[in-house]
Design a protein around this nucleic acid. Structure first.
Length: 624
DNA sequence: CGTATTTGACCGGCGC
DNA sequence: GCGCCGGTCAAATACG
């Protein structure tokens, strides 16, 4: 299976397929095992024969020679091959050998039958798998077409925007017909807008359309297109695009300006999100005495991605990082966590309405509520008119022109207040432990480097890593898995029991419903969870199809009120400002334990797939 | 010396 | 049209 990741609705389906494929793989293993057994059987038989006539190498070899090639030789043929004079004195031995031969052949027949049966089963499963694979693209395409009709962004894509580059450009162009740059750029046309997080959740179909190796997502589609001159933030447009689908234009207008803001506690100037940034400006924004720093991605020369970093005036330890744009290059593995998180958020933003809270998908709202309940708060901020929606422990608002989703990683769900606007957050209770620890990198550095491209992404990331040497996300996979194992053990009883200790039934039900009803959110959640839990964890959990994503009791979706034992330390960046590492720590993890949050969000669902980097399973998840 | 950061100037959007 | 504001540029500066 393609290593390219598939999150989201698409990913769900793909992971479902993957599950089946894995089961087939298991079957394959069984087949191989049978074959192995057969081989062993043959070897055992050979040994048997050898033992029966240890002194007769020629005889033994004769038997083997006749036996091994096709085992079809009859005993009469066998007899003809053996000199009767040479064996005259050992007729009894020959008899016994022939008897053994009969037994061996009989056993061999049984093994053959067994093997045939297994092979049949394997082929049947394989056929089923192929059928599934063939059916899924159809479903996906239908879904896409549906969304295109409605002008909504691609369902399965976690990109902030764009289902197609055309639409996005149209939008931008329509709004800025006199934009500074209108240079036609074929390459640009092909570029996919995605929230720069370079998460490839597009369907293969779209990938075909976008040959670019890094058709990243662009949160603000188009808006961040930078030409070689570096000044073409406005995407160049092709007039033909302008003419196309005005409804898409209207729809994508909001998409194109989408931003993802991440609020974390960080004592360092910026949090290390795995990317390399260069500061190009600083400004003191109105309403916040703390200067806002502007960074530009320097991983690739023309990467249009920008980020703004600003501290919360009332709590200097809180750092808000706003991402905008799409990476046009492979992301280092270390950047994938944040990337997928923000992508997921962006996807939520997109899947929800862009104009009003009422437009938000109920499923999204419910899941946001659920997520917020567990400590991960999402905010959709309207920069122009902050009218947050009050969900349990979270607020949602949307913007018509520049929607921003805020991932509040600083507070628990117990926070009573909520932010209304980026850059000027109202005071809120940050007293509780943070969910994600973006504490100092140094303190969390792990000895285990996970930089060998174990992820599918790795192949893309490697070129970058080679140069930057920062592509190693020190997830500390072994340690991580160890934690996960212990975690599973620790919570095994909980998981197996009918009661969800930490999750209210209604919350679970809402989340389950959301998962099952909103493919878009499935993708978003998958990405978010993957980013949080990390790709290095056990692959036992996986996303199943929407039909089976959660059973009625919600057993397949578990919100566990305990931090998942994940360590993801980012290696030091060359940038001096990148001092914070986005580290997801469990309460059991000593480093920065003060920041760990027992009540942090933990979506741990057996239905969510978190492929192990090194497993032989066909991972379809690419973290970026 | 090369690279990154700083910082004042500049530009465009938006509201009045 | 004017001023405010956010965002960006680019020369100057700092740093390794």
């Amino acid at each position: 299976m393609d290593m390219e990741a598939a999150y989201g609705g698409n990913s769900v389906k793909k992971e479902d397929q993957e599950k089946k494929a894995e089961s087939i793989g298991d079957e394959d293993c069984c087949t191989e095992e049978v074959l192995h057994k057969v081989g062993n059987g043959r070897r055992a038989q050979d040994d048997k024969i050898n033992q029966s006539s240890p002194n007769r190498k020629d005889f033994t070899s004769s038997i083997q020679g006749s036996f091994m090639p096709n085992m079809e030789m009859s005993s009469s043929e066998f007899n003809s091959n053996v000199s009767s004079s040479a064996l005259a004195g050992r007729a009894d031995l020959l008899k016994s050998t022939k008897a053994e031969m009969g037994e061996v052949m009989e056993e061999n027949q049984k093994l053959r039958m067994h093997l045939d049966r297994v092979m049949k089963e394997y082929r049947a499963l394989q056929m089923q798998f192929h059928d599934m694979v063939q059916q899924e693209p159809n479903k996906s395409s239908s879904t896409i077409s549906t969304h295109r009709e409605t002008g909504e962004p691609e369902l399965v894509s976690l990109s902030l925007g764009m289902s197609s580059s055309d639409g996005k450009k149209d939008d931008y162009f329509s709004r800025k017909t006199h934009g500074k740059e209108k240079v036609d750029n074929d390459a640009d046309d092909k570029e996919v807008l995605a929230l720069g997080l370079d998460c490839k959740f597009e369907l293969p179909k779209y990938q075909e359309n976008e040959p670019s190796p890094t058709p990243s997502l662009e949160a603000s589609s188009g808006e961040v297109k930078e030409e070689e001159g570096g000044k073409t933030w406005p995407p160049k447009n092709s007039l033909k695009n302008v003419r196309n689908e005005e409804d898409e234009v209207s729809q994508q207008t909001s998409v194109k300006r989408a931003r993802v803001s991440v609020r974390v506690r960080c004592d360092t100037p910026t949090m290390n999100d795995g990317c390399q940034w260069r500061k190009y400006g600083q400004k003191t924004a109105k309403g916040n005495p703390c200067p806002r720093a502007y960074y530009r991605c320097t991983v690739a020369p023309n990467c249009p991605v920008r980020k703004q970093v600003q501290r919360y005036a009332e709590d200097m330890s809180i750092l808000t990082t706003t991402y905008e744009g799409t990476h046009n290059h492979p992301l280092p593995i270390s950047a994938t966590a944040m990337a997928s998180t923000t992508s997921a958020a962006a996807s939520m933003l997109i899947s929800g309405s862009t104009t009003s809270t009422s437009g938000l998908s109920p499923s999204v709202a419910s899941i946001l509520s659920s997520a917020s309940f567990n400590g991960l708060n999402f905010y959709l901020s309207d920069n122009t008119k902050p009218t947050p929606i009050y969900l349990p422990n979270s607020s949602l608002s949307s913007s018509s022109s520049c929607p921003t989703i805020t991932l509040d990683l600083t507070t628990s769900s117990n926070a009573s207040s909520h932010p209304s606007k980026l850059g000027s957050f109202p005071p809120r209770s940050y007293s509780t432990i943070q969910n994600l620890n973006f504490s100092s990198l140094e303190s969390n550095a792990l000895p285990l480097s996970w930089s060998n491209g174990v992820l599918g992404y790795g192949t893309q990331a490697q070129p970058y890593n080679k140069n930057q040497n920062i592509g190693s996300l020190n997830f500390g996979r072994q340690l991580q898995e160890a934690h996960y194992q212990s975690y599973l053990q620790k919570n095994n009883s909980i998981s197996n029991s009918s009661t969800q200790q930490s999750l209210p039934a209604e919350t679970l039900a809402a989340a389950t419903k959301a998962i099952t009803s909103d493919p878009s959110f499935q993708s978003a959640l998958a990405a978010a969870l993957t980013s949080i839990i990390g790709p290095g964890t056990s692959s036992t959990a996986r996303v199943v199809g929407s039909q089976t994503a959660a059973d009625e009791s919600g057993h397949n979706l578990k919100l566990i009120d305990q931090s998942f034992p994940i360590l993801s330390s980012f290696p030091p960046s060359t940038s001096t400002v990148n001092k914070c590492a986005s580290t997801f720590l469990s309460s059991s993890n000593p480093p920065s334990s003060a920041n760990s949050q027992p009540g942090s969000l933990m979506f741990l669902s057996p239905s969510l797939s978190f492929p192990t980097p090194n497993n032989n399973s066909t991972s379809n998840v690419r973290l970026h």
